[in-house]
Write a protein that binds this DNA or RNA. Structure first.
Length: 258
DNA sequence: TTGCATGTTCCGGA
DNA sequence: GTCCGGAACATGCA
């Protein structure tokens, strides 16, 4: 589930239920999701400390705890689950932070994401790798500047976290579809006007998606038909195409996106 | 059984 | 040396 809007939703969820609460115990049910620490190390870092306001950058979530930060990534199947009473945990609940008044679970089916501990003064990019400006709120000039000189295809560029942080496969398809740009278009073939259209589409798609907490599946969105057997373009009705682009399944309208 | 899935990382070729 | 694209990763489902 998590691309930028989903992670934003998780940040709000964490802020609503867990911020300000003190950690009583860290229960690691599957140490396979701990990336740079151990159950003991994480417990030592978190026990007795309060969770601070989370900060999101792209698809990454950083939660101040004590003097350091808990760094979360959700991969393709991660989520958070809060319970104010003793819950029946699921198999996919890998790490449970038992807090005052409830428990917060890091849940992940495929374990492609994980948890990191970032000590005081350490640079998050040591964990996240280089990240471009957050896709929500990037200005047009910055967007243009970061695309300048890029050699490959536009879909691949949009999904490159070092270029702009937060765009994944489905968001990139949605943005390209809205801007009427074919996903295999080379970046260097894009006119300034089309880059402007891409930027405008990015802003519109992210604004609405942030409000919904995910890409809306409403009428007028590619997401509403993406993956369907006989998917048709919500604007023009043409049969949608799909295929591998930049290593992922892309969906596009062959009539409007050339 | 095989292929596919919204994530990142790693390696080889351009 | 840098950049880009595809394979690999872990797990479950159609």
């Amino acid at each position: 589930m998590p691309e930028l809007p989903d992670v934003e939703g998780l940040a709000r969820y964490l802020a609503r239920y867990a911020v300000g609460r003190r950690v009583r115990h860290v229960r690691v049910r599957d140490a396979g999701v701990l990336r740079n620490t151990t159950p003991q190390g994480l417990g030592h870092a978190l026990d007795g400390e309060r969770l601070g306001e989370p900060r999101r950058h792209g698809k990454w979530l950083l939660v101040p705890v004590g003097r350091g930060r808990l760094v979360l990534h959700f991969g393709m199947t991660g989520a958070l689950a809060w319970s104010s009473r003793e819950p029946a945990w699921e198999e996919a609940d890998r790490v449970v932070l038992e807090l005052e008044g409830g428990a917060l679970s890091y849940r992940s089916q495929r374990k492609l994401g994980g948890l990191w501990w970032l000590g005081p003064g350490e640079d998050p990019e040591a964990i996240t790798g280089p990240l471009g400006p957050d896709a929500a709120g990037i200005e047009r000039a910055a967007f243009e500047q970061r695309l300048a000189g890029r050699r490959g295809g536009v879909k691949s560029a949009l999904m490159d976290q070092a270029l702009v942080a937060g765009i994944g496969n489905e968001l990139s398809d949605e943005v390209l579809w809205r801007a009427r740009v074919h996903p295999r278009t080379a970046v260097k073939e894009l006119s300034a006007e089309r880059i402007g259209a891409l930027h405008a589409a990015l802003r519109e798609v992210l604004d609405a998606s942030m409000r919904h907490g995910r890409i809306p599946r409403a009428a007028g969105w590619l997401e509403s038909v993406r993956g369907e057997e006989d998917a048709r373009c919500p604007r023009c009705g043409a049969a949608l195409r799909h295929g591998r682009v930049a290593g992922r399944t892309a969906w596009w309208c062959p009539r409007e996106q050339r």
